[in-house]
């Protein structure tokens, strides 16, 4: 849930943007990070662990733990607690090791 009326900081969510998670639109606000905006929309599972295939989500919000890795605008392993939302951003779960994409393979 977005906090529209903060008891101390007042209302600060002014500029809404639309982000796309798994191709579905969700409402976010400009100053929010990707992980926070998803949490506001009740999306807490951001990926799966690589060995035991267990859910992972936001943990430290400081860019340290890497638990919030997701694929954002085509880039894998983005620390979504450190990146702010942008209009039209496309976000996918970090559910498996990325395919090595041919166009990035070099010569």
């Amino acid at each position: 849930m977005h906090i529209q009326h903060h008891p101390i900081l007042g209302g600060q969510l002014h500029k809404p943007v639309t982000i796309y998670f798994n191709d579905q639109p969700y409402k976010a606000y400009e100053q929010q990070t990707v992980a926070a905006a998803l949490m506001a929309n009740d999306i807490k599972r951001l990926g799966l662990s690589r060995n035991l295939v267990q859910p992972r989500g936001l943990f430290c919000t400081r860019g340290r733990c890497c638990s919030c890795y997701m694929t954002v605008n085509g880039e894998d392993h983005v620390r979504t607690c450190m990146v702010k939302v942008e209009e039209g951003m496309k976000i996918y779960l970090n559910d498996e090791d990325p395919d090595v994409r041919r166009e990035f393979c070099g010569d």
Binding site: F59, R64, C65, C66, Y69, H77
Partner: peptide, 8 residues
Amino acid sequence: MGPCQSKI
């Protein structure tokens, strides 16, 4: 040895 490099 993972991405957080023992920070956690």
